[in-house]
Design a protein around this nucleic acid. Structure first.
Length: 881
RNA sequence: GGGCGCAUAGCUCAGUCGGGAUGAGCGCUUGCUUCACACGCAAGAGGUCACAGGUUCGAGCCCUGUUGCGCCCACCA
């Protein structure tokens, strides 16, 4: 005798139990296996900065849905897990923690600081892995990687060395984005532009020869201290005479030239631009063309430098005020106009970026970007939804060289050594012991670390063993799909694509699935400062992982943001509860019914053929939706089937047989209940892994776990259009009876008599088969079935459905006049349907041009409406007589 | 300055190939302590698919434009 399910589902006990079981059985583990086709996903490695948030919940739930489905389908499914060291983000966090202890990273020193960082990694890395397990993620934990693992670090060095040797990595002094708060440069991608209301200052610089002034316009007056030229357009008539002349820079008493440069737009401002090559990207370019000096007036701390003269050590914003004041009192300020302009902010700390010339390492992008565009154009990698493809092209085609050095401690130290004796630069994947040129052992490694995205760019192959030619790499690579939120398309996805093409010679994944961001109930981004975040672990703690997963993904579409709020969690909880209770009902009635006893071939009645056909159809639809990444639709299909069809109709119908005396019928009912439920659970498993496993283990089944049970195949023998249509008609008829009962407020417990008149003998046969359904589901005491035209009850409520009329002789409740009114209303509705159909079919364009099938369908529908209409009018006439 | 997304029931959102909007959940109305489930059952109400044109036999869906909201990219000082 099988043990029934607990009265109430307890996710906590169930989830821990089955997760441990799956791990113990090594179901998550994948190995290169020539017998099977591989299916690979690499996890977007969560940053070790903090615990997972709700967005991670969605991201990983999606990946788990895919990997579980494919595993059940028989693929050798590998989900590669791991975490990211997140160089800058983690370092900022650790420095914050140190600040609370009252110490700085310099007090600790590099070595001790890194020890702290590794401790941090141990703590948060572990937390993250545990959280992923709680969500139910079926990652191959034996293969867990970290971006600063030995193997991955080797990959990073190898990649750096190869790019360097190909001339694709270079070092140089260029304008870069300096974050005065994080104390490092960041790449262009990491700068967030915010349009802000500001001002534009018009200044006039006196010409050295005393012949007058030239007026320039600037949004950053404090940088004038570092001006080394004024530029005008070469063809600007206003300034023809001035090109080549010297200007006396106010406040600084420096002579600077007026140069001609195409960059200047004569139509903007005054047509003359002050040039500060050390602190502006455009000015830097102008400076290159005209060999201008760099005067650095703003330092790395965001304060003015010695070069700024008397403004030295002032904060850059205080200096702005002081400079404007002094220019004004010197008579150099012409006017201040309001002006909107974009200011760059650091994506990590949100402080204003200072463009600054500094010596950094760069990756030359053009040669890498081109193949990355071509590969996507050839369809080797597909972005889902498709609209992101254009965005990707635009980025790739306009990309700047990638600044990869960071003035941080936590990260991959740049594998470059400088000979202290001869000045040689040595790039090596293994630590060199002597200079390759002068053999000196006096080498010093570059102090900087690499951009964190440099290592994540290699993730899809470095985790599989690259640069070694491992069996894993040749079997599991390229991966099938990368699942991530659209906000890291440039940071990460694009970089993986060009890196993979460069190092592996092929794309890293076939599909990129970009999902949206999870927002709060008001549509705001969830953030710590707003305090509007929902902790996925809390949801799991309260409702279970299945509910978390379902509530996060159902009703969403890929690429679009979604809102998350308690009602969604409740809806998912209710569904889980529904599945649980339906299963309890089935198990309670199954007794010790065994898998071998299941017979879904013989002795089937209408409802059986119907539900078997439906579950078969559902399994086809669900797989189609999963394969096209329409998870919301897959889940809706399963939800509706389980709730509205299996529970509301099939289970209710089954009660007649289960509580009856006919043993054969009982056996069939049990068989179909068990068979369909088991199949549905398998379809639900990727979405709700825990509850489905718990129930499945109690049900008659084959195999040791639902997660390695085969994905339900679509079987033609179950497809039964006839049964589906017949059942639809029966359900319509039952609903019509219920409707009348409700309208006349007949107590649900009250059994009533009912007469059905079929239009054809087929329908009569069908209704006879379904007689028990009426008794059970419509509260019918006595059902008489005749043919249209037979003697009908004198005083009865009427409903007309396709192929049949329904008469309910509800003594004492019927008011003939009211009933006539009701039927007339019904007739009106039918009339409008008939009109619509006739209009369509009377249109020669429709009949001639629409597909035959559509026209036939329309004819059939019209015929049906007309029949109903006729019968209702006939009934009205009878009642009026 | 470019580009993208969204606009469908009171709210939050689905809607695959262009073929009656029986759309979903929540909320609302009316009945139900019916032997799996009140986290439930049954019956209902509720839509000019943002607006204006166009293509088509037929448009929520395709095309053009408009409005509102949101997002991304961007070296006009």
């Amino acid at each position: 005798m099988k043990e029934n399910l607990a009265t109430v589902y307890d996710p906590k006990a169930v989830e821990a139990k089955w997760y441990q079981h799956w791990v113990d059985q090594k179901y998550f583990h994948a190995e290169p296996n020539s017998e099977k086709e591989p299916y690979t996903i690499v996890i977007p490695p969560p940053n070790i900065t903090s615990a997972l948030h709700i967005g991670h919940g969605m991201d990983n739930a999606i990946q788990d849905i895919l990997i579980r489905t494919k595993r059940m389908q028989g693929y050798e499914a590998l989900w590669m897990p791991g975490t990211d060291h997140a160089s800058i983000a983690t370092q900022v966090k650790i420095e914050e923690a140190l600040a609370k202890e009252g110490i700085s990273k310099h007090d600790l020193g590099r070595e001790k600081f890194l020890e702290r960082a590794w401790e941090w990694k141990e703590q948060y890395g572990g937390t993250i892995i545990n959280q992923l397990k709680k969500i139910g993620c079926s990652c191959d934990w034996d293969r867990t990687r970290f971006t600063m693992d030995e193997g991955l670090s080797r990959a990073v060095r190898e990649a750096f060395a190869r790019l360097f040797n190909k001339g694709l990595i270079y070092r140089g002094s260029y304008i870069t984005n300096w974050c005065p708060s994080c104390q490092t440069v960041i790449s262009d991608d990491e700068v967030e532009h915010e349009e802000k209301d500001s001002h534009i200052w018009h200044l006039r610089y006196p010409l050295k020869d005393g012949s007058g002034f030239i007026e320039v316009a600037t949004t950053r007056p404090e940088t004038m201290l570092g001006d080394t030229a004024v530029a005008v357009h070469p063809e600007d008539a206003r300034y023809q005479g001035m090109i080549g002349k010297q200007v006396l820079l106010p406040l600084m008493d420096r002579e600077i030239p007026i140069v001609a440069d195409d960059y200047v737009d004569p139509a903007f401002g005054t047509g003359a631009v002050k040039v500060t090559p050390a602190h502006d990207p455009n000015d830097f370019e102008i400076g290159l063309r005209h060999k201008l000096d760099h005067v650095k007036v703003i330092g790395k701390d965001g304060k003015m430098t010695q070069e700024a003269g008397k403004y030295e050590s002032m904060d850059r914003y205080d200096a702005r005020k002081a400079v404007v004041r002094d220019l004004d009192s010197g008579g150099y300020l012409v006017k201040i106009d309001p002006h909107k302009h974009a200011v760059g902010h650091c994506y990590r700390c949100h402080n204003v970026i200072e463009p600054m010339v500094s010596l950094q390492w760069f990756v030359k992008m053009t040669p890498l970007a081109e193949p990355a565009v071509d590969a996507v154009k050839r369809g080797e990698t597909k972005l889902v939804p498709d609209r992101f493809t254009k965005i990707y092209y635009h980025w790739m085609e306009n990309v700047h060289d990638w600044c990869i050095s960071r003035q941080l401690w936590w990260g991959h130290r740049i594998p470059v050594w400088y000979c202290q004796d001869c000045g040689e630069t040595i790039v090596a994947s293994d630590d060199p012991t002597q200079c390759s040129k002068c053999s000196s052992a006096n080498l010093k490694q570059d102090e900087d670390v690499l951009d964190t995205w440099f290592s994540s760019a290699l993730w899809p192959f470095s985790t599989l063993g690259w640069p070694d030619k491992t069996p894993e790499l040749s079997y599991f690579f390229p991966t099938n799909v990368l699942v991530t939120a659209y906000d890291i398309l440039f940071f990460w996805v694009a970089k993986m694509i060009f890196s993979s093409l460069e190092f592996m010679g092929e794309v890293p994944f076939k599909d990129v699935l970009l999902h949206g961001l999870v927002r709060d109930a008001e549509g705001r981004k969830m953030s710590k400062s707003l305090g509007n975040g929902i902790d996925p672990l809390e949801v799991i703690d309260q409702y279970g992982a299945d509910v978390l997963r379902w509530s996060l993904i159902s009703g969403t579409t890929m690429g679009n943001d979604s809102r998350y709020y308690p009602e969604k969690i409740e809806a998912a909880r209710n569904f889980a509860n529904k599945i649980w209770n339906a299963s309890r009902y089935v198990l309670m009635n199954l007794g010790d019914f065994s898998y071998e006893e299941i017979d879904v071939e013989n002795n089937l009645e209408l409802a059986d053929r119907w539900i078997l056909s439906r579950v078969n159809q559902v399994s086809a639809e669900v797989l189609g939706f999963i394969d096209s990444y329409n998870f919301g639709e897959a889940m809706r299909t399963l939800y509706d089937f389980m709730w509205s069809e299996y529970c509301d109709w099939f289970i209710e119908i089954s009660k007649g047989r289960l509580y009856g005396e006919d043993e054969a019928a009982k056996h069939t009912a049990k068989s179909v209940l068990a068979y369909v439920l088991e199949k549905t659970l398998r379809l639900l498993h990727p979405f709700m892994p825990f509850i489905t496993e718990e129930i499945w283990q109690h049900l008659p089944h084959q195999g040791s776990s639902i997660m390695i049970a085969p994905w339900p195949a679509v079987e033609d023998r179950f497809a039964n259009q006839h049964a589906e249509r017949a059942m639809a008609m029966v359900m319509d008829a039952i609903k019509a009876v219920r409707n009348i009962r409700a309208e006349l407020s007949v107590a649900p417990s009250k059994k009533v008599e009912c007469t059905l008149h079929a239009a054809t003998s087929e329908v009569k046969e069908l209704l006879t088969q379904a007689a028990a359904y009426f008794t059970k589901l419509a509260g019918i005491s006595e059902l008489s079935i005749g043919m249209t035209g037979d003697q009908k009850p004198a005083k009865a409520m009427t409903a007309v459905v396709s192929g049949a009329e329904i008469y309910l002789p509800l003594a004492g409740l019927i008011d003939i006049d009211q009933e006539i009114e009701r039927l007339k209303k019904e007739l009106k509705v039918l009339q409008s349907e008939v009109d619509r159909g006739e209009k369509k079919l009377n249109n020669p364009g429709f009949v001639n041009k629409a597909p035959e099938q559509v026209v036939a369908q329309e004819r059939e529908k019209l015929e049906d409406w007309k029949q109903k209409q006729e019968r209702v009018s006939a009934r009205i006439a009878e009642l009026q007589a």
